[in-house]
Amino acid sequence: MTKMERTKQSRDAWNWLWEWANPVKFMHLTGKALPWVVGLTLVTLIPGLIWGFFFTPEADKFGSSVKIIYVHVPSAMMAINAWAMMLVASLIWLVRRHHVGALAAKAAAPVGVVFTVIALLTGAIWGQPMWGTWWAWDPRLTSFLILFLFYLGYMALWAAIDDPDTAADLTSVLAIVGSVFAVLSRYAVNFWNQGLHQGASLSLDAEENVADVYWQPLVLTLVGIVALFVALVFIRTRTQLRRRRLHALELRERMADA
């Protein structure tokens, strides 16, 4: 056996290890962590929401509508963070070829979409009494709508491609290019609205003038939503990994039968 053959063989052995060790390790670790994450979600999100809903005073200007921020702000935050997490996971897949990365990105997309939709809907519901309109082409609103479209395209691409590795590669490329364009769109939209309206007359900057009474339960819900996101991504990635393994087993069965 020449040296080259030996190194090639050992590299193949490592490939095998990378291929299996990480999903297995991932299943093991997340299996252990999941109850804790779910617990953290329950002890932060639910008290935070109850606090926010029942025990916060009305705001001078906004009345009781201020309570909407407890569902709006956390989901808006996670809508962006979910995309960021998908970008990182995609990069991990492209660079290190860890299947967990690609599958975690796939698992996070529907979660991100739901948060984006919640942010848009609750924003519209808040905007109706406050601004007198369901929708305004405010830069922030518009950016979220565009983000929603990016999520749709990303998920549609996953759904359209049969081969899982090809789908993972192509969606990762899309996630990277899409991120650049999403940031670009954000700036473009800022510029565009300024150009039309000479300075935004409507702003969603609730945080800036939020007093402690509102801020404390909000922090609790923010922590809670992050925990919820992590828990959901764990669960969904585990589902994806199990499906992958199931697919492999079924192929083997079919081969054995043939």
Binding site: G63, S64, V114, L121
Partner: peptide
């Protein structure tokens, strides 16, 4: 149940939709 005043509809529908969507996802 806190008194939500004139924004009751907005607050309740926003919360309702959010909780429904999250529960559906979970």
């Amino acid at each position: 149940m806190p008194d939500l005043g004139k924004y009751a509809e907005a607050v309740l529908s926003a919360w309702g939709i959010s909780i429904f969507l999250v529960l559906a996802l979970v």
